[in-house]
Write a protein that binds this DNA or RNA. Structure first.
Length: 479
RNA sequence: CGCGGGGUAGAGCAGAGGUAGCUCGGGGGUCUCAUAAGCCCCAGGCCCGGGUUCGAUUCCCGGCCCCGCAACCA
């Protein structure tokens, strides 16, 4: 069984932030879980590196765009390393192969009659570097910059998205392309039903981009460029139609196509469901099977933003809690798919109660009892802990709850049986109870492997050692 | 009538037509194997107004409030 999972590629205009980490960690957990079930997994992530904003940011940093992007891509790779992310490929949209494939694809799209030239007219805000629609404006001014946008007109190429409206609607409605949670599907559908407009897919004055093959004065709009990463990340060369299938049989990686699961945050589901799917349907490339859309984190109920200065950076998380605990914390705040609120206080609380006092303390007491009373030698009794039925459904949060219940059960079981007395008064009964507890710990360790790979390994190594020892503390308490 | 989500204990959330649960925090008790951890108990709650119903916090209608999105923006 092959399984292809993607995260969006991240815009290098910004440094890695918590939202990036959230998606990527979730993808890694799902990928690891699939691998543990024996599936062949391809997990793609990467960076989106073209566009006016990147060029500007590079200029501000006194670098050429290429150097700037190299540095930024490295910072994303470093971040993922800190979180223990095991991706299969890290795609960059400035890779030569990606650029060539995008051009080839656009040429095909052009030849298929899906691209036409038109003039785009609108109100352009210099500060935002984007067009505004009248509804965006407050008393005729840009709400962000308090300036009056200028009437501008430019020549641009348009993608005939409107032609694909019915096709998109049908495929999403029928769950042929399944969008979850279902409220996101509804949102997308109502948007499509309200009527899709053709969209501009080129920029004349943006130099840092991929030139259109049929008009080198224009570069491809970054979204179009970026979306194709999901294909080029598998070594696709831009082929469409029969050539696509030919390539698929020759190229082992491309054989993973179409994606089984594409993760994204709710802000970009709409563009994915229209532009991205539209590009595929236009040229009859099989579309992805599933989109799963997660929510945003607020920090103390406030939107995180750099200007407010209330941002948590990913590296702060791994520094404070370690990679595994950071992964656990990100995923255990809120059901995957919903918005959540976090804060340093709440994370520390959760770390202490779930990991230090819960899991960590449990392993300490059980291993210690075995070490002290049975010379570290006890056979584990197999214990059930099934999260498959949840993980299959991308119920990450619920899976963690199920694991936590098992930890609770074990702690209660120790108390109810007064194991510390049993080992003195009724050694055989004590052995039996500890054997069950050891089995539970093994089951917990195994279930946690996709979430906390290193900790899981440590727990299992201790539990399965010929001579069990209490060992060092797994989660030092945070004060 | 733009679209969607939501208003449940001090905080963050879950839930369901008929004893409203969880985590943290607060109070009390208990054990001593363990990371002053564990286990047990207690206090405290369903936005407002109508309607349907034997009965609604749960369904319907109306209102108020909060949060996203509103396409060429990452």
């Amino acid at each position: 069984m092959k399984y292809y999972i993607t995260t969006p590629i991240y815009y290098v205009n910004d440094r890695p932030h918590l939202g990036h980490a959230y998606t990527t960690v979730a993808a890694d957990v799902l990928a690891r879980w699939r691998r543990s079930k024996g599936e062949e997994v391809f997990f793609l992530t990467g960076t989106d590196e073209h566009g006016a904003k990147v060029a500007q940011a590079a200029k501000n940093a006194n670098q050429n765009p290429r150097e700037f992007c190299d540095e930024k891509a490295r910072s994303f790779k470093n971040a993922w390393q800190r979180f223990g992310i095991e991706y299969s490929n890290f795609i960059r949209t400035t890779d030569a192969a990606h650029e060539a494939a995008v051009q080839k694809f656009l040429q095909a799209l052009f030849e298929a009659g899906y691209i036409c030239k038109a003039r785009y007219k609108g109100l352009y805000c210099q500060g935002c570097e984007q067009y505004k629609i009248p509804d965006d404006l407050i008393e005729g001014l840009c709400p962000d910059h308090q300036t009056k946008p200028q009437e501008m007109e430019e020549e641009s190429y348009f993608f005939k998205l409107s032609k694909l409206e019915k096709d998109l609607e049908q495929k999403i409605e029928s769950d042929e392309i399944k969008i979850r949670p279902v409220e996101r599907k509804n949102e997308v559908l109502s948007f499509i039903k309200s009527g899709l407009k053709d969209i501009s897919i080129s920029r004349k004055n943006v130099k840092w981009g991929i030139p259109l093959p049929f008009d080198a004065e224009h570069t491809a709009y970054v979204w179009v460029d970026a979306f194709l990463n999901y294909l080029t990340g598998l070594g696709w060369d831009g082929s469409v139609g029969e050539d696509f299938y030919k390539l698929k049989t020759k190229n082992q990686k491309l054989d993973f196509w179409p994606p089984d699961l594409q993760l994204m945050a709710k802000d970009i589901v709409r563009v994915h469901a229209t532009i991205w799917l539209g590009l595929l349907l236009a040229l009859k490339i099989p579309p992805p099977k599933n989109f799963f859309v997660h929510g945003f984190f607020t920090l103390n109920d406030q939107k995180m933003s750099k200007s407010l200065g209330n941002v948590i950076w990913p590296e702060e998380l791994t520094e404070k809690f370690g990679a595994d605990a950071a992964r656990f914390l990100l995923l255990s705040f809120t059901p995957f798919g919903q918005d959540g609120d976090i804060s340093w206080e709440k994370m520390a609380e959760k770390y202490n109660s779930d990991l230090a006092d819960g899991l960590g303390n449990l392993t300490s007491r059980v291993f210690n009892l075995i070490e002290k009373n049975f010379d570290g030698k006890i056979e584990a009794t197999k214990s059930d802990l099934d999260i498959s039925y949840l993980m299959k459904d991308i119920k990450i949060y619920e899976s963690l709850l199920t694991i936590k219940e098992k930890i609770e059960w074990a702690n209660k079981y120790i108390d109810e049986n007064k194991v510390w007395e049993l080992v003195k008064n009724d050694k055989e009964k004590g052995r039996e109870v500890l054997s069950r507890l050891l089995g539970a710990i093994v089951a917990i360790g195994e279930a946690l492997a996709p979430f906390m790979p290193k900790i899981s390994e440590k727990i299992l190594a201790r539990a399965k050692a010929g001579k069990i020892k209490k060992g060092e503390i797994l989660f030092p308490k945070i004060v």
